[in-house]
Every structure is written in C-alpha cells, then in structure tokens.
C-alpha cells in the first residue's frame, strides 16, 4: 500500500484539494447565512450588552457591567418564562409521545393520512390558529359551557395559565411529534419482538427499549419546543390575556419602548445563556450512564 501511494503524491494531494474545495462549496451558503444572520448579530448583541444607552435611546460604546447588574435585579420575567417553557415542553411531550408512537407503529397504511391531518392546520397562519382558540375556549363555547356546568357565570378558561399551556402545546406539537415519529419509525420493529420474546411485557418493553431508542428524538423535540417557548409571548398575550410578564415582553419593552438597547441586549444574552444551560443540564441528565457505553444521545450513533 505504502509503495503504491508514494509515486503519486501529486495526484493524491490534488484530489484532496479538490475535495476540500467541494466541502467548502457545500458549506458556503450555510456559512454565509450563519455568519451574517447569527454570528454577527450575536456579536452585536454581546457588544451592546456592555455599552450604555444613548441620550435619545439606542446604544453608545462603553464598557460597563451595569446592564447585567440590572438584569440580575429583575429576574422575575426569566423565571416566569422558564416555568412556562418547562411546563409547556413537558406537556407537549406527554401529548406527542403516544401520538408519535401510534403513528409510527399502529397507523398502518393510514399513516400518510394521519401525518397529513396533523400537518394541515399548520398551513394556516400561526396567528389565525391561536385566535381560533379564543373562539373555541371563549364564553360562547367551551368556556361558557363549563361555566354553565359549574354554575359559575364568571368562570373562564381564557386568561388562565391553562389556556396558555394549551396554546403552547397546540402550537408546538408538530415540532415534538416529528423528531419522535422519525426515530420511532426508523426503529427496528424486531427489537420490540425481541424484548417480548425475552420476557418483557408491553410496558417493560416500552420503558426499556422503545423509550431509550426514541430518546434522541425526544431530546431533539424537547429542545426544538423549549427554545421558542422560552421566548414565547404571543400565545400568553392572546390566550393568557397579557396577564403575564415574560422575558419576551421585557425585551419588547426594552428595545421598543425604553429604547435601552444595552439593557435589552444584556437580557438577550442572559436569555441565551439560560437556555444553553438548561439544555445542557437536560442533555446531561438523559445521557447519564449512556455516554459511558458510547450510546449517548448526542454522541456516537450506530453506523
């Protein structure tokens, strides 16, 4: 092998250069995209967060940690958002898991139809869908109906944490279902038979085989759902009647109303950090013990 390779270093080198060029070409559009729409803006946000508010609003270059000090003093919106996103992610998972499992394993030839039914509502604007819940849960319909049953004319579903959670679950369900569905669908069905064959019942099989194998999809789905829920403020505004003051509200207030870009930037940086930490802890948690055996969720996978 070695002797065969030595006489042709030029060709090998040329081939390598060519392949590097191709790699570069393939990555170029995404790199430009990320550079200008993610890295650069993030850089600005970080830089702004150490600056000072200009006299008429905006930003003047400076170096101060005051903004972060102020963020730390008013942590409430962060906690509110964190609570909401955690509960929302968990509930979405509870709804999505059985549904994805059904789709992947039991829907049979109607699978395509079910997936279509699941997707169709999302062809409508997000806003229209959220508004629709105003009607469904409103006093003319479900809210009034339940109020009638309870004999409480002032009963309402809207403007409650429950309504917000419902809106969150509804709005982000597909983001959770599809990664789960894909991992479950790809899963070798004979694994389930093997488990039953080895003496594990339905629930034991689900717990020991299906769930661990679906875990990468579950983690992906949770992250996909958690991140936008952290920044969510439209659903709480519409279905929650704007009664909550979330990090999203705080950012809008800082940037548009107070025109205090440095403070808003500091909050944005803390928000991103909060999400990164939460996600890291989460991934670490589900990976406990798995990483050691090389089957970690975000680690190596079978070829």
């Amino acid at each position: 092998m070695a002797t065969a390779l030595t006489p042709t270093p030029a060709r090998t080198g040329g081939g390598r250069a060519k392949s590097a060029l191709l790699t570069g070409a393939l990555l170029l559009p995404a790199s430009i995209w990320y550079l200008f729409l993610l890295v650069l803006p993030m850089g600005f946000v970080v830089a702004f967060s150490f600056g000072e508010k200009a006299r008429n609003g905006g930003y003047t270059p400076a170096f101060t940690l005051d903004n972060y000090g102020q963020v730390m003093k008013g942590a409430d919106p962060f906690l509110e958002s964190l609570k909401l996103a955690t509960a929302g992610t968990f509930l979405t998972l509870l709804v999505a898991l059985p549904l994805a499992y059904f789709l992947a394993t039991r829907a049979g030839s109607r699978k395509g139809l079910f997936v279509l039914l699941l997707v169709i509502p999302f062809w409508t604007s997000f806003l229209i869908r959220t508004y629709s819940w105003l009607i469904v849960l409103g006093r003319g319909n479900l809210g009034g109906f339940i109020g009638g049953l309870l004999g409480d004319p002032n009963f309402r579903l809207l403007g409650t944490p429950g309504a917000i959670l419902l809106g969150l679950v509804y709005g982000y369900l597909p983001l959770m279902i599809f990664p789960l569905y894909v991992t479950l669908e790809r899963m070798d069905r004979s694994l389930i038979e093997a488990s039953k064959d080895l003496g594990a019942g339905r629930w034991a099989t689900f717990r020991q085989i299906t769930l661990p194998i679906a875990l990468p999809g579950l983690v992906t789905g949770s992250i996909l759902v958690f991140i936008p829920m952290m920044g969510e403020y439209v659903i709480p505004q519409i279905l929650g009647y704007g009664r909550t003051f979330l990090i999203g509200n705080a950012l809008v207030l800082d940037f548009l109303e107070a025109r205090n870009w440095p403070l808003g930037s500091a909050k944005a940086v803390v928000l991103i950090a909060t999400m990164l930490i939460t996600i890291s802890v989460y991934v670490w948690f589900v990976n406990r013990g798995r990483q050691a055996r090389g089957v970690g969720v975000l680690g190596a996978r079978p070829p």
Binding site: K53, N56, G57, G74, D76, P77, E80, T160, P161, I164, P236, G240, G242, R243, T244, F245, N249, A250, L253, E257, A258, R259, N260
Partner: peptide
C-alpha cells in the same frame, strides 16, 4: 416623545404588569 423611554416610567409599567399575575 422625549419621555417615552424614561426609566422611571418604564419601571412603573413593569411593576404594574408583573403584579397582575398569570
């Protein structure tokens, strides 16, 4: 227009919104 970004006014508003509660 020169007072809309006043920090004290913002603080009043933030406190009000936070006190409504979910």
């Amino acid at each position: 227009p020169t007072v809309t970004d006043n920090a004290d006014r913002i603080a009043v508003w933030t406190a009000f919104k936070s006190s409504i509660g979910g």
